[in-house]
Amino acid sequence: MTRAVLSIGSNLGDRLAHLQSVVDALGTDVVGVSPVYQTAPWGPVPQADFLNAVVVAEGGEPREWLAVAHRLEQSAERMRAERWGPRTLDVDVISCRQGVDLEFSVEILSDDADLTLPHPRAYQRAFVLVPWLAIEPDAVLTVDGQVRPVADLLARLEPVERDGVRRTDDALTGPVS
């Protein structure tokens, strides 16, 4: 069993509903949901702000998480017409760990063309790191072969990048036990 960190974002349509659809689809596999943040788009394409969150879930293997991410994007009618363009839903597999106990789990590393783990640019993106830290303050991520605290990675980003991640009053609801 793996523990996956999924970054979710939307800047088209009912953004909050698109994010909630991920939590709903993952159901009882969800072990944590971050607050919702509003962020400026990343990349060169002019577009509306995103709503972003992070979901931590337990379940299948890394390729299964990728398949789930693609299925959820398709359900939200995501179009992949333009790199870094607007989207109804973006689901990225940021990290997978073998074992569910964060302290004793091992991060899965992959250089596969279809699934690079951890996500190769996650450490550069405050819209991933801020929500992740909100639910896993002791999170770590392998960068350039070294395990680094996510809090340290966030601290190394430019202040404008960190300050651009603004917590909203919106909330995603997890599964009811």
Rank of each mutant, 00 (worst) to 15 (best):
L26V: 01
A53H: 06
N11A: 03
D90V: 07
Q20V: 01
V140W: 07
L117V: 04
I108F: 06
R162C: 05
A122N: 05
D144W: 11
T142Y: 00
W132A: 01
D138K: 07
C96Y: 00
D14G: 01
P131T: 00
D138T: 14
T39V: 09
V68L: 14
E64W: 15
T28I: 12
M1R: 15
E64D: 12
G59K: 13
V54W: 00
V143P: 03
I135V: 14
E77T: 07
G99Y: 13
S10K: 07
I94N: 05
Q98C: 09
G43S: 04
E58G: 13
I135Q: 02
A151V: 05
E61Y: 13
E158W: 13
P175R: 07
Y123I: 02
D101C: 15
L133C: 08
R63S: 03
R83H: 10
V55S: 00
D90P: 11
V106G: 06
D49W: 12
L16K: 01
E103K: 14
V130F: 00
E158C: 04
Q20M: 03
L157W: 06
L66Y: 14
G60E: 08
W84Y: 15
D29G: 12
W132Y: 14
R71Q: 15
S105G: 10
P131C: 01
G164H: 01
T116M: 10
G85A: 08
L129K: 08
P86C: 06
D169G: 15
L172Q: 04
E82T: 15
R156I: 05
L6D: 06
D170W: 08
D29Y: 01
R97I: 07
P46Y: 04
I108V: 14
W65M: 04
L129H: 04
G27H: 10
T39G: 09
F104H: 14
N11G: 01
G43Y: 01
R63M: 12
V140I: 11
A17Q: 12
E158M: 09
R83T: 09
A57W: 02
L129M: 07
S110Y: 05
T116Q: 15
V140R: 15
A151F: 01
V160A: 15
V106A: 12
V165M: 00
A134T: 13
M79C: 05
D152L: 10
V22Q: 08
A4M: 11
A139I: 03
E77A: 14
V147I: 15
P86R: 08
L102I: 14
V165Y: 11
S7K: 02
A57K: 00
L51C: 08
A171K: 08
V143W: 05
M79I: 14
G174K: 15
V128E: 07
L109K: 12
S95V: 12
Q74T: 13
A48I: 06
V30C: 02
T88E: 02
D112L: 11
A171E: 10
L157C: 10
E73S: 04
P149N: 07
D90T: 10
A53N: 07
P86F: 10
Q98A: 12
G27C: 11
G164C: 09
L89W: 10
A171I: 07
Q146S: 14
L66I: 02
L109E: 15
L102Q: 12
V56C: 04
S34K: 02
V23S: 04
G145Y: 11
D138L: 11
V22N: 02
P41M: 04
